[in-house]
Amino acid sequence: VCKIPGCTKRYTDPSSLRKHVKTVH
């Protein structure tokens, strides 16, 4: 789960989560 408040994205792959946080937030 993305830890950013208001963001409901969920990832099973830690690298995908990291990429999401870097690119989306």
Rank of each mutant, 00 (worst) to 15 (best):
T8F: 08
P14Q: 09
D13F: 02
H25E: 07
V21L: 05
K3N: 14
V1N: 08
R18A: 15
K3M: 04
D13H: 06
H20S: 02
R18V: 15
L17W: 02
C7F: 00
T8G: 13
H25I: 01
K9A: 13
K19Q: 11
T8V: 06
R10Q: 13
P14M: 10
V21H: 04
V1C: 08
T12R: 04
K3L: 08
P5F: 08
D13P: 01
Y11P: 06
K22S: 14
V24F: 09
R10S: 15
P5K: 08
I4L: 06
H20N: 04
K19N: 11
S16Y: 06
D13G: 01
V1W: 00
K9G: 08
P5G: 11
K19T: 14
V1Y: 07
V21F: 03
R10A: 14
I4T: 02
T23E: 15
V21A: 06
V21I: 04
C2D: 11
R18F: 13
G6W: 02
H25F: 00
K9S: 12
P5I: 05
T12F: 03
D13V: 01
D13Y: 02
R18D: 15
P5Y: 03
V24G: 10
K3Q: 11
Y11S: 11
K19D: 14
K9H: 11
T12M: 06
K22R: 12
K3A: 04
K22Q: 15
T8Q: 11
T23S: 11
C7G: 03
G6H: 00
C7E: 08
K19A: 14
D13C: 08
I4C: 05
P14C: 11
I4G: 03
T23H: 12
K3H: 06
L17F: 04
C2N: 05
V24E: 15
S15W: 03
S16W: 02
S16V: 11
C7K: 02
V1A: 02
S15T: 11
C7V: 01
T8P: 07
D13R: 02
L17A: 06
S16N: 11
V21W: 03
S16P: 03
S15V: 10
T12H: 08
H25S: 04
K22T: 15
P5M: 05
K22F: 12
K3W: 09
L17K: 03
S15A: 12
T23K: 01
G6T: 04
T23L: 09
K9Q: 13
I4Y: 13
S15D: 14
I4A: 02
C7T: 03
H20M: 03
S15C: 10
H25Q: 04
R18L: 14
P5C: 04
T8W: 01
P14A: 12
K19Y: 13
Y11G: 10
P14S: 11
K22G: 12
I4S: 07
H25A: 03
T12D: 15
L17I: 05
K22A: 15
H20I: 00
C2A: 01
R18M: 15
H25T: 04
D13N: 09
V21P: 03
H25P: 07
K3C: 09
R18W: 09
S16E: 15
I4V: 10
V1F: 05
S15G: 10
D13L: 01
P14H: 06
P14N: 13
R18E: 15
S15P: 07
P5T: 10
K3S: 13
V21R: 02
T12S: 10
P14E: 15
R10F: 06
V1M: 08
T12A: 08
P5L: 02
C2G: 05
C7A: 02
C7I: 01
C7S: 03
C2R: 00
V1G: 02
K3T: 05
G6E: 09
V24A: 12
R10G: 10
T12W: 00
R10T: 15
L17S: 06
G6D: 06
V21K: 01
Y11F: 13
V21Q: 14
Y11I: 08
R18G: 13
L17P: 06
T8Y: 07
V24T: 12
T12Y: 02
I4D: 11
C7R: 00
T8S: 10
T8K: 07
D13Q: 03
T8A: 11
K9I: 06
T12I: 08
Y11K: 07
Y11L: 08
S15M: 13
G6S: 01
K9Y: 13
K9T: 12
L17T: 07
V21S: 04
Y11Q: 09
V1Q: 04
Y11W: 02
R18H: 13
G6Q: 01
V24L: 04
K22P: 06
T23F: 04
H20T: 01
T23C: 05
T8L: 08
P14W: 04
S16L: 14
H25V: 01
T12Q: 13
R10W: 08
P14K: 08
P14V: 10
G6F: 01
P5H: 03
K19R: 07
C2L: 01
P14I: 09
P5S: 11
R18I: 12
K22C: 11
H20C: 03
R10N: 09
C7P: 01
T12E: 14
G6A: 02
R10V: 14
I4E: 12
P14G: 10
H20K: 00
T23Q: 09
C2S: 04
D13M: 01
K19I: 12
H20E: 09
T23A: 13
